[in-house]
Design a protein around this nucleic acid. Structure first.
Lengths: 197, 197, 197, 197
DNA sequence: AATGAATGAGGATTCATTCAT
DNA sequence: TATGAATGAATCCTCATTCAT
């Protein structure tokens, strides 16, 4: 899709990127409603009004962060999964990548998980679509496991629910994101393999 | 004057209860920050200022809803678990009760899961304590299963993560809350018992 | 005017007096506008609404405090002045009594000096009348000194201005109210230029 | 576009100045607490919220007025005192300037004297510092008189107390501010008892 | 590409006060 | 005498947003 990744951002996108970074940082820590345009302006040495040159509204800024968050975490997860061929190894790599992004590596990814689409009604449909787009990966990875159809759906929901809930209690210094990811997956894995004993 | 003493309407608590109900309903649907005191006033036929006779602040109102939510869902879960003796049956009953409350039976319970403590910094400690108090039940129910210590923690987190994530996608008409609960639990069950094949 | 001072307050005036005391204490420390009916209620273990049984409004409560303040300080000043016969000694005694009441002995007196009539427009005329009524004493005491007519007025204003300004800077532990009073009076008694040369 | 460069209206400070002027006018007449942001907005043809573009809070607006008040009255007093060399003449000139500003020439100065620092606890320290900074002038002017040390302090307090009390009773049409100032000073210059037989 | 200044609606909250009981 | 519950208006302030420059 991207023709030349290295050649991407022309100089004028500098500020836009700075803005996105700062906003993602604030929103992932304080939440969307608790972050004001003033806050974002302060963090970027910009006046609140100036932000509107780059984004049509606060909601649109959020959508951009969401989109970027999905892009980044998807890219990393895809790369990780691609490094293995065994379906379960692929899923595991994806879970680890997912949680590393979510817990430490990307404010953007954190925003995607933390901000509920329904909390921003005006753009909730688009936010949901972005989320779904991302979660599709896990649907496919799980499909590779050849579970009964009905089971697949719940396995995905439980897996992501379990992984994402880590955002609420993860603290640096305890289990690493990778370890947490494997532990959560472990909770679902053994039955999947069944032939044990 | 009192026709039936036992039936005596505690009139003074009437409005307070009405207020809590209305606020829980609004907050669980729109979120805490998107619900204004004006909204709550409108839903109760009260002036915004009048709410302050009953609650010292919006945050305190939220704490009261949280506390009531925990009280209600805990009561229901405890009763459900008490009806079985087999540890796994007890856990299953608890999961079903939890999800029925969360998805259809109680706006209060929904608030507890939906509103993140960190989104309301001034009272986040108290909200977290209430949540923890509730989740303790699941810690105990899982402990009865006699899993390896390390596994218990992740089993609980994954289970609750999986169950609670249903709030994001549950729609009446699809799988019932009870069925969802059993399906999620199923994802964790089989390995626990290992009697496969 | 008072027929029997000792026989004054009948039992039912208990609460009213309590109310006045508490309100005077709050108002003299925080000011009139910064003291709410709620504050006064809290200090008296009364609900704000209950205060209205005793006083028609917050402004009327202030007028009552003012009146009581004037009554008390006037009584003390009059008694002090009566103990001397020499005009200057009488004035000095009055100044000392005035400042002792104002700085340490009476919250009521403090209110009279601290709350500007113009700050409470609805009753400013009555407050001013009460003040004037009190200051009349000083007019008379100064008249006894047999100064030129024109001088009398300014002597009184300067004297009271000087004395009352102590309210802004007096701190227990420094000069006593009595000493301050004598020092201020001294400024008017002894010429500034010291006949030096 | 600019017709006269030297006459270039500093448009950007226009509103801020207008705001300060209007607020000083209202506050010196009604008092700080009785003046609302709405009132100030109305007087400036601004919405209340717009004021916050220029001042962070109502208290900060007051501090700005105080500072400007001190700046203005200090400037005038300093100039007046500088025009004489005899210490007593210098003090007299200062008193006259002080009272002219206070009674008729400057709403700002009036605010400084009228609003008690303790009435605005959040900024009372800064208000007090501003006042002290101004009064320092009188300390120095009085020091030039070579009075006994102990006397100096009370002379200053009495003098300022007497002068400032004029704010409570001055009415245009009576004695002029300059005359009042001289009369008050006279009270300290000439002994009270002198011509007593 | 950004600023300075403002808007207008709405935020939570506090106020003095009322009144049935 | 007092309370419990509420009122209605006003409080300060913050919000996302706009727009001429």
């Amino acid at each position: 899709m991207a023709i030349t990744t290295s050649e991407r951002a022309p100089r004028q996108d500098n500020r836009r990127q700075h803005l996105l970074d700062a906003a993602a940082g604030l929103i992932c820590r304080r939440g969307y409603h608790a972050t004001s345009m003033r806050d974002i302006g302060r963090a970027t040495d910009m006046l609140p009004g100036s932000i509107y040159y780059h984004f049509a509204s606060k909601d649109e800024l959020l959508v951009a962060i969401y989109a970027e968050g999905v892009r980044r975490i998807a890219e990393r997860v895809d790369k990780a999964a691609a490094r293995a061929t065994d379906p379960m190894k692929r899923l595991e790599a994806a879970c680890v990548a997912h949680l590393e992004m979510l817990l430490t590596d990307s404010d953007y990814a954190q925003v995607v998980v933390r901000v509920l689409p329904e909390d921003v009604p005006a753009v909730s449909v688009r936010l949901t679509a972005l989320r779904d787009d991302y979660e599709e990966r896990f649907r496919r990875l799980i499909a590779e496991l050849k579970l009964p159809k009905a089971r697949q759906r719940y396995a995905r929901l439980t897996l992501l629910g379990g992984l994402n809930s880590a955002q609420a209690w993860y603290r640096p210094g305890g289990d690493s994101p990778a370890r947490i990811a494997r532990r959560v997956l472990e909770c679902l894995r053994e039955p999947l393999e069944v032939e044990s004993q």
